[in-house]
Amino acid sequence: ASTADPTKTHHHMISSTSSQLFNQETLQQRLQQLIEGARESWTYAIFWQSSYDYSGASLLGWGDGYYKGDADKAKSKLKTASAAEQEHRKKVLRELNSLISGSASAPDDAVDEEVTDTEWFFLVSMTQSFFVNSGGLPGQAFFSNSPVWVCGPERLANSGCERARQGHVFGLQTMVCIPSANGVVELGSTEVIAQSSDLMNKVRFLFNFN
């Protein structure tokens, strides 16, 4: 197991059994491969990595994510964001941008583009983690070791999972969680996408590193 480094780890995430197996670059490539090559139009893909908190409880936290966006940008545009909310999103994005590129760097025009609902949902996901037994979609998929496929606005809103409910609010119509070695691959789309074994096989092929 890896050693804890409080300067690098998120509050309660102290160990990760799989961090040495996953290199960030290959995770990013695999997530990209998964949705860029797909027939269906997925908005994003996230790898939730399994780890443990101090008490030994199983936890899923951010491993990596790839945001593709929507072919039809209008679909992910500001269904919920008021002008004040949009200003808030831009402010956060500017701060994150200077965190990454250094505060001395030139202001970046792209940062001042509207932050769409699905972009915001993706960004907020980076701060989240889930207990495996808490009933949410990623935990459910990991715990039962079987895929969870939720599509259609009513099913997302009423799935009993806070993350799915949030996804629905931010314009998603399909959310899928597929278990893999050491974690769960989650995909989301602003379109209704029917379950396909093709995608699940692809996840098994790309993410079962062991």
Binding site: W62, L99, S101, D109, A110, E113, F122
Partner: peptide
């Protein structure tokens, strides 16, 4: 954001970079 963990930082950098590319291509 000081304690923003490494994995998230890498994800964020790639998200921002691709966002910049999308804005330029639009």
């Amino acid at each position: 954001y000081v304690a923003f963990p490494q994995a998230r930082k890498a994800s964020l950098a790639s998200f921002l970079e691709k966002r910049k590319q999308r804005a330029m291509n639009a």
